[in-house]
Write a protein that binds this DNA or RNA. Structure first.
Length: 660
DNA sequence: CGGGACAACGTTTTT
DNA sequence: CGTTGTCCCG
């Protein structure tokens, strides 16, 4: 096999002039990473150390060296991150950079699997089960197996899905997950295994994959088919992986296999910022990278360009408390700046008021709203603040937590579309049929069997003899589906037909249907951008619109707004001013984290990630009095991650009551 | 068998 | 607080 080795004097035109001034634009470590193009490379990139910049320049460099963009693969945590980097690279160099293949592991796996599904006994028209779909399947199967009889305390569908997914992502046995995290379900292990087998069978038979399957099948494809592995590996001769600390075992395997033909892999990550352990991510992947690729060159980026020294000092103080020692020390040249502040508010209302007032004051001082963010551990922590911001008329977007795509009405409409792509998608059928007045689980099951048996595709619906109670409604469904299914309508039009059908159901089901109807027409606008229904559906599963319903409605991206975000969704981002709310025991760290030391360590890293998002101003706030369901109002305790930080580096503020 | 009404539960982060 | 499970009536 032909090998490409690009070295000084290897036949390439030497001393090629570059249009981009790499050396001037980058610090020595960054420059080193950007110009090391061949062989395994591990970049340990501290928070704010110009990781994105480095990746961006490296893409540009590769392209400028003459590497075809289509042979570069950039794996990132979100598609947005990849697009942003490629857009910037294109800005540095030219449009060619936009042609680089980029996206998430899941999206890339999806892409490859669509093409080679046949190799693993699948068809390429598989549908993707999102988390709730997967739970629905499990629920259906569980009921079918009689595992929900009431004398048992069998885990809920959500728990079951979590157990299966954790086992897959951590590459351990189901019984190990149960022993570790759910010992009280030990006696259900045999049934959980039986159910798991049924679940696997179901997915295969009905041509659906859940998120984990995408990775597992992709890995299997690469592992078992040497020829294909080399073909793919040769196609993507330069692989870059961002956020490597948040990859799991399966993803690490995939990286190894993708690099089989060339070992040109660059992994970028920061062990202090590993926050996806619950998803099977293991920051030790970073340490293992040099083991996986023995000739790995390691570059550390330790100069922070984002934050002032006072902010960095507090951040370092936080991460210093980690049990696991980390690989680098950050420093900055921005030596001056305001001290981070710790604000004790009387209660949640006061906390919200403080944040919103401070936002308005800073706005007065000329800080744009989009340079401010409020971060929190869990989505619901922001509810009260959302009310307050609405009240004061401060525009905001909320990122993370509640999913637009997971609202019932969106899922309903998508289910109708999914069966157009994959008739075997029983859960979607189930959802669609149960929406028909007069059809319940039992009748739905009968109809699905009849359609499947007829083997006539959508026409099989005509073979069903509906009961009198629901005949009329059923006929409406039948004609809508056949209409939408019929000869090559544009994607958006299929949606329109089905929405027309669904609208009366929506009105009947929900009192707030006007709002939901707006969501659905919003969805149609998104559909309009697609030529292929399957693409639309997999995108909705893999890269759904990330913001909440309210925001999807206001499409003015240019409007200035404060960002409210979970810390997980704030990864990689930065703002002039950052508020971290609910910095108290039980919330942050979350109560559940007390279960194990690893989880507590991850909470600590989460706090570190939050703090290092700030460029100039950093506020920690917490309410002193907290309302607890059972106990009424109780005193809170400051988060252990913040408690004990000296006043010289974290200024305590007390709030003075004033008029609102 | 479908569907509505009510009780109970547990409550994170995301592809 | 909203979802999930259960019960009972039509």
């Amino acid at each position: 096999m032909k090998r490409y080795i690009i070295k000084e004097g290897s036949g390439r035109p030497a001393a090629k002039p570059f249009t981009i001034p790499y050396e001037a634009a980058l610090n020595p470590a960054q420059y080193d990473a950007v110009t090391t193009l061949e062989g395994p490379l591990l970049v340990i990139a501290g928070a704010g150390s110009g990781k994105t910049r480095t990746l961006t320049y490296r893409v540009a460099r590769l392209v400028e060296e003459g590497v075809p963009p289509s042979s570069i693969l950039l794996l990132t945590f979100t598609r947005k991150a990849a697009q942003e980097m490629l857009r910037r690279a294109a800005g540095l160099l030219d449009q060619r950079c936009e042609k680089v293949a980029g996206g998430t592991f899941h999206a890339f796996a999806n892409l490859v699997l669509r093409r080679y599904a046949g190799q693993i006994g699948f068809e390429s028209a598989f549908n993707i089960l999102d988390r709730t779909d997967a739970e629905d399947v499990i629920n259906l199967l569980r009921t079918g197996m009689g595992l929900n009889l009431k004398d048992r305390r069998f885990p809920r569908k959500r728990t079951i899905a979590t157990i299966y997914s954790r086992a897959a992502n951590k590459a351990v046995l189901i019984e190990e997950v149960i022993a570790r995290d759910y010992p009280h379900f030990t006696r259900e292990i045999p049934d959980l295994y039986r159910l798991h087998e049924a679940y696997q069978r179901y997915k295969r038979k009905n041509l659906v994959m859940d998120y984990d399957d995408l990775l597992l099948y992709f890995r299997a494809l690469l592992e078992e088919n040497a020829e294909l592995r080399h073909q793919i590996s040769r196609t993507y001769r330069y692989v870059m992986v961002d956020e490597y600390q948040d990859t799991n075992k399966i993803q690490a395997d995939i990286v190894r296999l993708l690099a089989a033909a060339h070992s040109n892999v660059m992994a970028v990550g920061d062990d202090s910022q590993s926050i996806y352990g619950f998803r099977g991510a293991n920051f030790r992947n970073i340490m293992d990278f040099p083991v996986m690729f023995p000739d790995t060159k390691i570059v550390k980026l330790e100069e922070n360009y984002r934050s002032t020294q006072p902010i960095l000092t507090v951040a370092n103080e936080i991460i210093d408390r980690a049990r696991e020692k980390h690989t680098k020390v950050l420093y900055t040249r921005k030596t001056s700046g305001a001290l981070p502040v710790l604000v004790a508010a009387e209660d949640e209302r006061m906390q919200s008021r403080f944040v919103s007032q401070r936002i308005m004051e800073l706005r007065e001082e000329g800080i744009p709203l989009d340079e401010m963010a409020v971060l929190f551990r869990s989505s619901y922590h922001a509810f009260d603040l959302e009310i307050e911001l609405n009240h004061k008329g401060i525009p905001f977007v909320k990122v993370g937590g509640f999913k637009f795509m997971e609202t019932a009405h969106i899922k309903d409409l998508l289910a109708h579309l999914k069966i157009l792509v994959n008739l075997n998608d029983t859960v979607s059928w189930h959802r669609v049929l149960c929406g028909v007045e007069g059809i319940g689980p039992k009748t739905a099951q009968d109809i699905i069997s009849a359609v499947t048996k007829s083997k006539a595709g959508m026409k099989g619906l005509s073979a069903v003899k509906p009961g009198a109670r629901y005949a009329q409604a059923f006929e409406r469904l039948r004609s809508a589906l056949e209409d939408a299914d019929g000869n090559g309508l544009p994607v958006e039009e299929m949606g329109e037909r089905l929405l027309e059908y669904y609208m009366p159901i929506l009105k009947q089901k929900y009192d707030d249907y006007p709002k939901r109807a707006k969501d659905l027409s919003q969805l149609l606008t998104i559909m309009d951008r697609y030529e292929n229904l399957g693409h639309f559906l997999s995108d909705m599963a893999l890269e759904p619109p990330s913001t909440s319903v309210n925001d999807v409605l206001s499409t003015d991206d240019r409007d200035e707004h404060v960002v409210l975000s979970t810390i997980h969704s704030a990864k990689g981002l930065e703002w002039h001013t950052v508020f971290i709310i609910w910095a108290l025991e039980g919330r942050f760290p979350a109560m559940y984290a007390a279960r194990s030391e690893e989880e507590m360590e991850e909470e600590l890293r989460l706090m570190y990630v939050a703090a290092t998002r700030a460029k100039e101003n950093l506020y920690f706030t917490y309410p002193v009095n907290v309302y607890d369901y059972g106990l009424g109002t109780v005193f809170s305790r400051l988060s252990r991650f913040i408690d004990g930080i000296p006043e010289e580096i974290l200024a305590p503020w007390s709030l003075v009551a004033g008029e609102d």
